[in-house]
């Protein structure tokens, strides 16, 4: 057998990824149902943060209304389940398509602005979506939301998603698929162009890149990922209410991306796991979770505005060069 060091790095990385996936999958069978549920929450928000990261970290567009696309995906999947079909694939396809369509419409509006105005308009668009979820009672159930959404049928024999452990496998696979797809995107010419736009959009335009179109596509794709997260969310929880669409969720996802490390692939996962775990742990000890969350916002902006991944990476490089 060849030594690991002689193998191609991509093969090693691939083998490690498969091993990590297998280990994570096995974990679902070992943990209590409560802990598994917590992991599912983490995975859902990881996917949402991963999508936002394409805009915020990769392209440098600070969207503050990303819960909107998450919510649109969740509501759409829920409505398909309640009124049309219990097929996971129909629900997911409809949800992602609707999220991307809303993303396209909002992107057209939001990309007319830049800088601080982009922040404000995405926030406002998010609140409009919240208001629609709240006000359009006949469709969305108003502030009660949609309830009684069952677990979907995947049409795959042997996978029972009615149990928490089974659903965990689905969520894990969904997150892994999202991660792989995002990895392709950020390494592709398209992803490289987004990084270029982040660093110097004027030069990109002068070189011949249609900067607006790249931003728009990034906006739409990012909304699609958020919709996918919404699908996994709504089938797990069985309900969706306007709260999931509002600014509190949008800000929290932004925090996850930043605390993990904007512009990295693993950062959004780290950030999502950190924030979701913290909220569960802290809520077990005190009613003042919001105070702790607020302090987390403040401390991250003060001490780690570039995120954990970057912080660790810098420390690592400093040690190596020392």
């Amino acid at each position: 057998m060849r030594e690991i060091s002689q193998m191609k790095p991509s093969l090693v990385a691939g083998a490690l990824a498969v091993a990590a996936f297998a280990a994570a999958a096995a974990l679902g069978g070992l943990l209590s149902s409560y802990s598994t549920g917590l992991l599912i929450d983490c995975l859902i928000f990881s996917v949402l943060a991963l999508g936002l990261n394409l805009l915020l970290g990769q392209t440098g567009l600070p969207s503050l209304g990303h819960a909107a696309y998450f919510g649109v995906g969740a509501y759409t999947a829920g409505l398909v389940m309640l009124h049309v079909s219990d097929s996971f694939w129909w629900g997911a396809a409809a949800a992602i398509a609707t999220s991307m369509a809303v993303g396209a419409a909002y992107g057209l509006l939001a990309l007319r602005t830049s800088g601080v105005y982009f922040l404000i308009i995405t926030l406002a668009l998010g609140q409009i979506t919240f208001a629609i979820a709240f006000s359009w009672r006949s469709l969305t159930g108003g502030d009660d939301g949609l309830r009684g959404i069952g677990r979907p049928d995947l049409g795959l024999p042997g996978l029972n998603v009615d149990t928490t452990a089974g659903y965990y496998l689905l969520a894990l696979t969904a997150a892994a698929a999202a991660l792989l797809l995002m990895r392709l995107i950020v390494r592709s010419p398209f992803g490289e162009a987004l990084r270029g736009i982040h660093q110097n959009s004027d030069r990109m335009a002068a070189l011949g890149y249609n900067v607006w179109l790249y931003k728009f596509l990034a906006f739409v794709i990012s909304a699609g990922f958020a919709g996918w997260a919404g699908v996994i969310f709504v089938y797990y929880k069985g309900f969706i209410s306007p709260e999931a669409v509002g600014i509190v969720v949008s800000a929290e996802v932004t925090l996850m991306v930043i605390v993990g490390g904007a512009g990295t692939l693993i950062g959004p996962f780290l950030g999502a796991f950190l924030v979701v775990f913290m909220s569960h742990v802290v809520s077990g000890y005190t009613d003042r979770w919001l105070t702790v969350l607020g302090l987390l916002y403040i401390c991250v902006m003060l001490f780690a505005p570039k995120g954990i991944v970057t912080l660790v990476g810098d420390a690592w490089r400093a040690r190596r060069s020392a």
């Binding site: 915020l56 600070p62 503050l64 800088g115 601080v116 922040l119 800000a251 932004t254 925090l255 930043i258 003042r288 919001l290 105070t291 969350l293 607020g294 302090l295 987390l296 916002y297 403040i298 991250v300 902006m301 003060l302 505005p305």
Partner: peptide, 24 residues
């Protein structure tokens, strides 16, 4: 003042302050 020039940083930091104050 510590996050001067970082618009998103200001928004998120002030959102954190808002959360702390409203909770307290």
């Amino acid at each position: 003042e510590r996050v001067h020039g970082n618009e998103l940083g200001q928004v998120l930091m002030s959102f954190g302050v808002l959360l702390v104050i409203s909770d307290l």
